[in-house]
Amino acid sequence: MSTPTLAATAPGSGPAGGPGAPQRGRRRPRGVEALTPAAGLGLGVAMLWFSLLVLLPLTAVVVTALEGGWGTFVDVVAEPDTRAALLLTITEALGVAVVNVVVGTVIAWVLVRDDFPGKRVLEVVIDVPFALPTIVAGLVLLSLYGPRSPIGVNVVGTREGIFLALLFVTLPFVVRTVQPVLIELDADVEEAAASLGASPATILRRIVLPSLAPAITAGASLAFARAISEFGSLVLIAGNVPGETEVASLRILKFIEGDRYASAAAVAFILLLVSALVIATLDVVSRRVARRG
């Protein structure tokens, strides 16, 4: 395919040393222009889908939030209850992400590296929080840790309760992102490190974790994003005391019920910013860990 092109352009392209690189440089943009019909259609469908589902609604929220000008933001953040809700949501979500990083990685490790009776069952159970409607998840937690708890633990209406519910619904993220990477990790790489004198702890720190870092942060980002926006399970657990146990998503609901769309959009916008910021930060951290070794 490339031979005729080369033959056609070579005579005109000057000294012998030069032609290779500039020619490739010239050909690349041409390749982008010349999308095959199938690729063009695919790209079109993807863009349309993405626009309708994500981009346009997102823009609408941002526009609504900014419509009222800077004032709306100041007003919303000035409300102590809203501020408390945002702060609560963000700190809980961060905490959940951190716990998930540790526990999720350990669970993934156990699932991949160890053999024990009931491993298959655990494999399936991990996904239960994904499969359950979140309101059912709330109900499940309520029946064990609610007012009629058979073990006498009642977390309803407490911050610990919110944390527990968030941990429950975000459990699978890190496990499911780390697991496939861990399976793909070659045993001989660890053996090589061992025969070079590395202790198991060193192998974990310098060989295994850097390889897992992108997967761990991807899982943590997902868990964080899910936690910051969680609604269903918290409706039953959180208790929704303004300024105490009311999370941002429930705050937004309250604004909408009170016909305060601009305020709702402003809170949504702040959540969006925080999410983007945290995900970007995690990405930077992951790259750094992956490179350090």
Partner: peptide, 24 residues
């Protein structure tokens, strides 16, 4: 354990530490 045998081992599929440079 392998750590204390003082042997160098080379694997068929290189077992390179993928996230480190050649020098590392």
């Amino acid at each position: 354990p392998p750590q204390r045998r003082d042997v160098g081992f080379v694997f068929q599929h290189y077992a390179a530490f993928k996230h480190m440079t050649v020098a590392k």
